[in-house]
Simulated scan of single mutants.
Amino acid sequence: MSVTSERYVRRWPDPAALLTLIKPITWFPPMWAFLCGAVSSGVAFSGHWPQLVLGIALAGPIVCGMSQAANDWCDRHVDAINEPDRPIPSGRVPGHWGLWVALAMSALSLIVGWFLGTWGFVATIVAVLCAWAYSAEPVRLKRSGWLGPGLVGLCYEGLPWFTGAAVLSATLPSTPILIIAALYAIGAHGIMTLNDFKALEGDRQMGVNSLPVRLGPERAARVACCIMAVPQAVVLVLLFAWGAPIFAVAIAIALLLQLLAMRRMLGDPKALAPWYNATGVSLYVSGMMVAAFALRGMEAL
């Protein structure tokens, strides 16, 4: 049976397509950021394993999975141009199933967040609202090349980091934790901009003003690199100032390697943006954990 005919015949979604819809490959960044937040809190994991495991599951499969389902539902017309084999435009997730999955997972997110205390629940509410604000009309912040990636960076790195620290410490995280989490969230704007390269043609046709559309691939790539690099430079300067020079040097080395990878990527950003997302981003998130351990030492004092 062809994809076209299946689109009109299928009444129930393909289970494998439902898994594809919530994109497990995207769960790692918020799960890692939540773990960074937990590490940075300075609280021993012993006695807090249930909150830690539940929080990681909430950040990744539940909230991030929900956001992916919501985005695919709201992007089904764009995806029909960019990636027609995706679950919804291909018909493997037919009718309104994509919407129902996103709504059900939104409710599940709030239920699970309730069990993570006041700060965990508040952060979950913010995450769910941001997910729908990013994708759904009439807000649809992804139309903006500045606000869209910024919101995703906040929800992928900053908000999970805050939540991990708040859940384990059962209080508002300290100012240094909030500053470092915010800096890595800002830097993630550049990562999200590079991720927009894969949808360049469809975004142009559908009026999504991503930075690659607005600035062109070359300028957008340079802007993305600056946005990624500058916050990390600020992080290493702060760690030096806060008396954690070894951790600052480790982040400096990771940043230097990223700059070398950026130099190569800028030679052909449209072709090499996916390569950078598989190499430079690994160094970026490694630096996050280094910073988390530096903060952990400070919090333990």
Rank of each mutant, 00 (worst) to 15 (best):
M192D: 13
A182L: 15
A181P: 10
G207R: 05
P217Q: 05
N195D: 12
D196S: 03
K198T: 04
G202V: 10
V213S: 02
S174D: 13
P217V: 07
R204H: 11
E201S: 12
V208K: 02
A220E: 03
R214F: 03
P217A: 11
D203V: 06
A185L: 10
A221P: 02
I191P: 00
G207V: 10
A185D: 04
G190V: 04
G216Y: 09
T175G: 14
M206K: 15
K198R: 14
G190C: 04
G207F: 03
I191L: 07
M206W: 05
F197S: 10
A188L: 01
E201W: 08
L178W: 11
A221W: 00
V208D: 01
A182H: 12
H189P: 03
V213A: 01
A221S: 09
P176F: 12
L211R: 09
A220N: 03
A182T: 15
E201G: 10
V208T: 12
P217N: 06
M192H: 12
Q205S: 13
P212L: 07
I186L: 15
A185M: 07
P217L: 03
T193C: 06
Y184E: 04
T175V: 15
P217R: 01
G216P: 06
L178S: 06
N209C: 14
D203F: 10
P212M: 05
M206N: 10
R204A: 13
A181M: 07
R219H: 11
L215P: 05
A181Y: 13
M206D: 04
I177D: 02
M206E: 13
M206L: 12
A220L: 05
P212D: 03
G207P: 06
P212K: 04
R204Y: 09
A221G: 03
I177P: 01
Q205L: 15
I186R: 08
L200H: 09
P217G: 10
V213D: 00
D203S: 07
S210G: 08
A182F: 14
A220Y: 00
S210H: 10
G202C: 09
L178R: 10
I180W: 00
M192N: 14
A181E: 02
E218N: 13
E218R: 12
T175L: 15
G187N: 02
G187C: 09
A181D: 08
A185C: 09
R204S: 11
L215V: 07
S174C: 11
T193H: 02
Y184F: 15
A182S: 15
T175E: 15
A182I: 06
D196T: 04
V208C: 05
I179Q: 03
I186D: 06
H189D: 04
G202H: 03
R204I: 13
P217C: 08
G187I: 00
L200Y: 11
M192Y: 06
G190I: 01
